[in-house]
């Protein structure tokens, strides 16, 4: 009878002979890679050594209406608005989107409507824009990082689009999703956030006349680094609610989990209303630096849009619903 003796070492555990013979080179290469990685991280140019470039000027948009919702404050420059962007899909440095979004393809573009509504399915961007009157809305834009800008958005009320989708009575919230194409968006290759980026609004916030879908800037087609071809603007909320490059709109019954809340729920909530009285755990939100100014400004409740939106939150504890 033949009794097989089990092998002492599984073949999978035996080091490849080639690797063994070349072990010195292997160790050297591994160390070399580690050292190189560390060196790039430590010495590698951060922000400064790279030249950020303002967006090239795009096609002029026609038939833009002025709006009474516009602020009359001094506008931030095109250069500011197109080189200082938080758009993590194109890198976490402010100037990275201006360089890495340059060849981002925004045509053709499809927005998919889904969830608790009658008109579901994919829509071409042209169809989203069809029949909408574009308005110039000069809004105060307040980032959660304590800087702000005055931006002449071109867009139309989100409510116009929502009505078109015919949401059902079960639709209590709207959830938006950003494109998640790692071939075009180098930022997606690092798990900095859980991709794709998701944001949401309560139905009454979404239907509010101040809430707009943005398709342009300074009278021109929206530059890629600012969230082309279609982004959200909700001026009484912090910048991260202004989701960019929207590919999906979903009507839902339950409050969506927005990306930054998912990332750090103790720091970023669902509502994210601009509120000078409620500090970010790591910094005060009482003041802000307007880009281009030295002395800081006092941050206004609801970013100065309290008269229009405060009633949406009557009876709510804004300290808890930050």
């Amino acid at each position: 009878m033949l009794i097989k003796k089990p092998a002492d070492i599984k073949s999978s555990e035996i080091t490849d002979k080639k690797l063994y013979v070349n072990r010195r080179e292997f160790i050297q290469a591994a160390t070399g890679t580690a050292v190189a990685a560390a060196a790039t991280g430590v010495l590698g140019s951060e922000a400064l050594l790279r030249a950020s470039t303002p967006a090239p000027h795009g096609r002029k948009l026609e038939g833009i209406k002025k709006s009474t919702f516009s602020s009359d404050e001094k506008l931030n420059k095109w250069e500011d608005i197109t080189t200082y962007n938080n758009y993590y899909e194109f890198g976490t440095d402010k100037d990275e989107p201006s360089m890495l979004a340059r060849n981002f393809k925004t045509t053709p573009w499809t927005v998919t409507v889904d969830g608790e509504c009658a008109k579901k399915g994919p829509m071409n961007l042209e169809d989203v824009l069809k029949g909408k009157t574009l308005e110039e809305r000069i809004y105060r834009h307040r980032c959660v990082e304590r800087w702000s800008m005055i931006i002449p958005w071109i867009g139309f009320p989100l409510s116009d689009f929502i009505k078109q989708c015919e949401p059902t009575s079960k639709a209590k919230f709207v959830e938006f999703t950003t494109l998640g194409d790692s071939k075009q968006m180098p930022g997606l290759r690092s798990p900095v956030l859980r991709w794709p980026y998701v944001e949401g609004l309560r139905m009454d916030e979404a239907m509010h006349p101040l809430t707009i879908l943005v398709a342009g800037l300074y009278g021109e087609v929206l530059p890629n680094q600012d969230g082309a071809p279609l982004r959200l603007a909700v001026p009484w909320k912090y910048g991260f609610k202004h989701i960019k490059s929207i590919v999906k709109v979903r009507f839902v019954e339950k409050q969506p989990l927005n990306t930054w809340q998912d990332q750090a729920a103790n720091e970023y909530g669902f509502y994210a209303n601009v509120n000078p009285a409620v500090d970010h755990p790591r910094w005060s939100q009482a003041t802000e630096r307007r880009i281009g100014e030295f002395l800081m400004r006092k941050t206004l409740m609801f970013n100065g849009y309290g008269d229009q939106v405060a009633s949406l939150y009557s009876g709510m504890d804004l300290r808890r619903n930050y």
């Binding site: 951060e46 922000a47 400064l48 950020s52 931030n76 250069e79 500011d80 080189t83 200082y84 402010k94 100037d95 800087w147 630096r289 880009i291 281009g292 030295f294």
Partner: peptide
Amino acid sequence: NLSANPLSDLTNE
């Protein structure tokens, strides 16, 4: 030649 927010660049750098 710094970004749109030069004061923040100075602090970070």
